[in-house]
Amino acid sequence: MPGPVFLRGDRVTLRTFEEADLGFLAPAYEDPTVRQRMGSHGPYVERHERNWLESLDEDTVGLVLCPQEGSAEPTGVGLLTLYDIDEREGRAEMGAVFLPDVRGEGYATEGCSLLLDYAFGERRLHRVRATTLAVNDPARATLTRLGFELEGRTREATLVAGERVDELRYGLLASEWDQSETDD
């Protein structure tokens, strides 16, 4: 079970990642197509996730996304990360993984919005980067909806189901995020 609330939105909360959350994302990696689309090529190993949990520090933020469900106990359906936080350069990379049965609910957009508010408004970052594969349509749609610009394409960067696919790099600036906030 995830820890206490760190960021609160209308439909979701982002909570601290705890020991008890180890393994909850394993189903996200079960579908080989989905897994490869996320750029993950090895088996899901809980030990690796534990190492990651132990590495969380001021340069790596990992938060569990929980839909708001009245008084029910919070249940994690995804993991949002802000990592490689470089305070001198003022930049970081954002990542997201969701369980298969909640995809398409709009949780990614709301969760990432909260994380971007945090990145720019609380951590004083200047830009946030996100990387995805050209075949990952849901991720591309979410990034575009959030206002990310496509900044680069690494051609034939990796293999998905035996086919070479491009890797796409997106970026969002603090000034653009402020702008899109006022447009709402």
Partner: peptide, 9 residues
């Protein structure tokens, strides 16, 4: 305080 703190931390 601007970073999430899990129980380990």
């Amino acid at each position: 305080s601007s970073e999430p703190k899990n129980m380990r931390q």
